[in-house]
C-alpha cells in the first residue's frame, strides 16, 4: 500500500511517501503563514521524487505540533507515536528514541515490540533544542552547517556556566572576548546542549540502542558530545529529520502499530 505521512513541525513541513516500508519520496517546505499551500509544496516535491501522482496515495496520516491544521487526512498521530514508529522500523533494536527539532527535544522509550512506554519532553527551554545551536552559531559568526565540523577539531573542554539559552549567548560573547578559540566554544555549545538532552533522556532511562532523529542529528559536533555523555554509540538514520513523517506513513499503512 502506498501511503503518505505529513509532519507539520514548528519550522518545517516534511512529507514522506512510502510503499511496503520503503521510502519512495520525500519533500520539505518551510512553515509559513499559509500552511495549506506549504503542505502542498512539500507534497508535490515528495510526489515528484517518488514519480507518482496524488491519486496513487491510498492513505495519509498527519503528525507534528501542527497536525490539526492538515485537512483531508485519514488520521493523525502525535510526534511521539510517529517518531517511535519510524525509528523502530529503521532500526528494529531501538529502545530509546531521541528527537531534537527546532524548538523541542524529546526522548521516547519503547519496549521490545516498539510500543511507547514512556516519554519526556524538554520543558520551555530553548537550550535543549535546535534553536539553541542556531543562536550560538550566530553569536560565533559561523554558518550553522560548519558549527559541527568546527567543534570536532577541538580537543579542549571549556565549561559553559550559563544554564539558559539567553545567558549562554552572552557567555559565548564573553568567551570570544577572552580569546577562547572558536572551535573550543563550538564544542562547549554542543556539550552544554548535550548535557540538557542527556538530563532529559535519563528521565525515561537510556537503554540501547539509542536512535537520534530530528534536524540536530545532522550536526556531527552535537552527535559527538551526546555519544560522550551517554557513553554509547548512537544510531542515526539517513534523513533524520524525515523520520516522524516516515513513521506517520508507516502507521497509515498499518506496517507500524
Amino acid at each position: 500500500m502506498i501511503t503518505t505521512g505529513i509532519d507539520v513541525g514548528a519550522k518545517n513541513i516534511k512529507v514522506v511517501i512510502q510503499e511496503d516500508g520503503k521510502l519512495l519520496g520525500k519533500g520539505q517546505a518551510t512553515s509559513g503563514l499559509d500552511t495549506a499551500s506549504d503542505i502542498k509544496q512539500a507534497m508535490d516535491a515528495a510526489l515528484a521524487e517518488a514519480g507518482l501522482t496524488r491519486d496513487k496515495v491510498e492513505k495519509t496520516y498527519a503528525t507534528g505540533a501542527g497536525r490539526k491544521e492538515v485537512k483531508e487526512v485519514d488520521d493523525s498521530y502525535t510526534e511521539v507515536g510517529a517518531d517511535a514508529a519510524g525509528a523502530v522500523h529503521l532500526f528494529p533494536g531501538t529502545r530509546t528514541v531521541i528527537d531534537i527539532g527546532a524548538e523541542e527535544g524529546r526522548a521516547i522509550k519503547v519496549d521490545e515490540n516498539g510500543k511507547v512506554v514512556d516519554f519526556a519532553i524538554n520543558e520551555r527551554c530553548a537550550a535543549g533544542a535546535g534553536a539553541f545551536t542556531e543562536a550560538m552559531a550566530r553569536a560565533l559568526e559561523v554558518p550553522l552547517t560548519e558549527l559541527g565540523p568546527l567543534s570536532l577539531t577541538s580537543s579542549k573542554a571549556v565549561p559553559m556556566n550559563a544554564q539558559c539559552a539567553v545567558f549562554a549567548e552572552s557567555e559565548v560573547v564573553s568567551l570570544i572576548h577572552q580569546k577562547t578559540e572558536k572551535r573550543d566554544i563550538a564544542r562547549a555549545v554542543h556539550d552544554a546542549m548535550s548535557s540538557r538532552i542527556t538530563s532529559m533522556a535519563r528521565r525515561v532511562g537510556v537503554e540501547p540502542s539509542v536512535c537520534l532523529i530530528g534536524g540536530v542529528a545532522k550536526n556531527p559536533g552535537f552527535v559527538d558530545s551526546l555519544q560522550r555523555d551517554l557513553e554509547m554509540e548512537i544510531l542515526i538514520p539517513d534523513d533524520p529529520d524525515f523520520v516522524g513523517a516516515f513513521g506517520a506513513a508507516l502507521l497509515a499503512a498499518g506496517i507500524a502499530k
Partner: peptide, 15 residues
Amino acid sequence: DEARTMGRIDSFMES
C-alpha cells in the same frame, strides 16, 4: 503551556 499540555495528553493517550 496549554497547547503543549494537550499535545502531551494526546501522546499519553496514544501510548
